[in-house]
Amino acid sequence: MADKYYITQHCSIEGSRISFNGAEFFIAPDTAFADFAKQAYRHAGIDYPKFFKMDNLSKLSFLAADLLLKDTVPDGGNNTALLFANAASSLDTDVKYNDSIIDKENYFPSPAVFVYTLPNICMGEISIKHKLYTENSFFVFEAFNPEFFANYAAILLDTNKAETVLCGWVEFFKDEYKAFVYEVAKEGSLEHTAKNIQTLYLS
């Protein structure tokens, strides 16, 4: 790659705990995700009723992205691309939706659940909230893939498809979850390398 890029901020959500740039932002020990998400939403001071209609994967992704994007002005002029990935795709909601079509005597498939049976919907939710008319793409890998994030974010920046990139590993399945979302920019101090990404992911 021609240019160097930098990780400017990062957020992790795992085990009822949110950390932002390495510091603890919110913690609610031993709380199931639904309740945890609600508490985190209140703690962050977000006012966005649509949040409560989202599925778990979208809530998780939204909370992490909201911390990183809280200072951006939602005027449609922000060119922050979204580059998200996970291992389970939308399987958590897929299973929930599938359960609603198993019993033929009680067959009421829900459109509000069905719409979330696509993993990229979480990026749509973030784009709508922050008015991001930007490059969006969702990938699936067996495990966290720092090399891919490093390479693809660099491509988006090298080719001027984006000014900054929000990279997100957002995994949710059966109340096991982890979000690791970080921002890549053209200036900063921590270089955007697979090694640094991996270190932050594990921290």
């Binding site: 749509g124 939710e125 991001l132 008319y133 930007t134 490059e135 498809k161």
Partner: peptide, 9 residues
């Protein structure tokens, strides 16, 4: 190019 509508899911 692959750009979002930022409008509705």
């Amino acid at each position: 190019g692959s750009i979002n509508d930022a409008n509705h899911i």
